Computed example of a mutant assay.
Amino acid sequence: MGAVSAVFLVLITILLPPVGAYIVAGCGADLLINICLTLLGYIPGHIHAFYLEYVYYERKESARQGRFTATRAPGVYSERVQSGGHGYGTMVQPVN
C-alpha cells in the first residue's frame, strides 16, 4: 500500500506541486513556500515538493526500521515531514 500511495503522490505532484506539498506537509510554511516557488516558476515548485516527499518517505522508512534521524533536514519546516509522519509524542526527541 505504501508504494501505491507514493506513486499516486508523485503523479499528483507532477501536475500540481502545491497539492503534493500539502498532502505531505499539511497547511503551513512548507505549503506557502511551495506556492511561492511554483508562482515564480513551475520547476522550483517541483524541486521543493519532491524534496519534501523524499525527506518524508526517507524518515518514514527509517522510523519503521527503528532508527531516528536526530538532525533536521534543511529547508523543511513541517514537523510531520521531519519525523516521517510519526510525530505527536510517538517518538522521543533527542536532547541536545
Rank of each mutant, 00 (worst) to 15 (best):
L9S: 04
S83M: 14
H86T: 01
G41Q: 12
S62P: 06
E58P: 03
L40M: 13
F50T: 00
L16Q: 06
L52Y: 10
H86R: 14
D30T: 02
G75L: 15
A3Y: 13
Q65C: 08
L32S: 05
Y56N: 01
D30I: 08
I14Q: 07
Y56M: 00
S62F: 08
R80N: 07
R59D: 00
I43N: 04
A3K: 14
G84T: 07
R72A: 02
Y54P: 07
A21S: 07
A21V: 05
Y51G: 01
M91Y: 12
P17L: 07
G89R: 14
V76W: 10
A6H: 06
V95E: 09
A25L: 10
G89W: 13
I33Q: 10
Y57T: 02
I14A: 02
T13Q: 06
A21T: 08
E61W: 09
I33S: 04
Q65K: 13
E58D: 13
C27W: 14
I14C: 04
Y54H: 06
Q65V: 09
R72Q: 07
Q82L: 04
V24M: 03
E58L: 11
T38I: 15
I35C: 03
A6K: 14
G20Y: 13
N34Q: 09
I33G: 00
I14N: 06
K60N: 10
Y56I: 00
R67C: 00
L15W: 08
G28H: 11
L15A: 06
E79N: 15
G66C: 04
T90H: 15
S83H: 14
S78F: 11
R67G: 02
G41K: 14
F50I: 07
G41S: 09
A63G: 04
M91W: 13
Y54R: 11
A25W: 11
R80G: 00
L11C: 04
Y88K: 15
Y57D: 02
L15F: 14
L32A: 05
V95G: 05
Y42G: 00
T90W: 15
H86D: 05
G84I: 11
E53R: 10
V10S: 08
A6R: 15
E61H: 08
I12N: 02
H46L: 06
S5N: 09
V95Q: 13
V81W: 11
R72Y: 11
S62N: 10
R64L: 06
M1D: 03
G45R: 10
Y42C: 01
C27M: 11
L9G: 00
P18T: 04
V10M: 12
V55P: 00
L16V: 03
V55N: 01
F68V: 00
H46M: 05
A70L: 12
V7F: 14
S5T: 12
Y51Q: 02
